[in-house]
């Protein structure tokens, strides 16, 4: 599989990364190498092998539906770049 520069631009957009032209030049071949590395898995014959949903052979881990204390609001909001003591503040979300 060959990655184009447009592919890298799209992935960057989805990840909300702003890349300069120079960075795209640098990252496109690097990402290409990573994909090639992962592609080496294709050498294995997986005929008849069930797809694995999880690395651990564990299932059915549940917690009971019992309320535990939440964070005090000051603590919940403490790391936010912008907040007003009640809400997180973010640049206007419009047009929804």
């Amino acid at each position: 599989m060959t990655l184009s520069r447009a592919d890298v631009e799209k992935v960057a957009l989805l990840a909300r990364l702003e890349l300069s032209s120079a960075e795209l030049n640098l990252l496109t071949p690097q990402l290409q190498q990573i994909v090639e590395y992962v592609e080496s898995l294709n050498e294995l014959n997986t005929e008849g092998v069930e797809p694995m949903a999880h690395a651990l052979d564990v299932a059915n881990v549940f917690a009971e539906d019992v309320v535990r204390p939440s964070l005090p609001r000051e603590q919940a909001l403490a790391n936010a770049p912008h907040q007003d003591g009640e809400f997180y503040l973010v640049p206007a979300v419009l047009g929804e």
């Binding site: 917690a63 019992v66 309320v67 535990r68 939440s70 964070l71 609001r73 919940a76 909001l77 009640e86 809400f87 997180y88």
Partner: peptide
């Protein structure tokens, strides 16, 4: 295990998992 009760004051029913 944060409560789901409706109508609580904003951001009083959160924890490190759900934020």
């Amino acid at each position: 295990r944060c409560s789901t009760k409706f109508g609580a004051l904003p951001n009083t029913q959160t924890c490190p998992v759900c934020i």
